[in-house]
Amino acid sequence: MTQQASQGDPAETGPRPIVPYLRLPDENGGDAYLVGKKCPECGAIYLDSRIGCAKCSFVGDLPEVRLGTEGSLHTWTIVHMSRPGVPVPFVAGIVDMKDGISVPANIEGVEPDPAKLKFGMPLRLVTDKAFTDAQGRDVIRYAFRPAG
């Protein structure tokens, strides 16, 4: 879903989001947040750019909506082999958002130990720096941590 991810305009500097559906704070501050495209007919929400709805076949503009920060852990795995350079092990999961969409994410703040991971555990969105890209820009990602 990240085929449109900005690899960085060489003219731009400063932090950039790792995926296009993550919005970073602008000059007015505020929190980073996720956005989705919501079908005006059936309410299905998507993370990617699209011209219509996979669920109900509506064709037309899917307005962008700001997603909340609360979710719960639907399923997970502990990844020991990933792209070269990625620190392992880490917990990868699918998070069901209260908005009615699921998102992929790393789960932070929990040891990568099967005994510590609970299906349905409440989570909240956080953002941090993933890495610095070849142009020297900070690449910001979102993740989830146990809520409360």
């Binding site: 990240t2 790792i18 995926v19 990844v79 990933s82 990868a92 890495f131």
Partner: peptide, 13 residues
């Protein structure tokens, strides 16, 4: 580039 930072899309995962 999101692999490993925004979940994992490897087939084993």
């Amino acid at each position: 580039e999101s692999e490993g930072y925004v979940g994992s899309g490897t087939m084993p995962a």
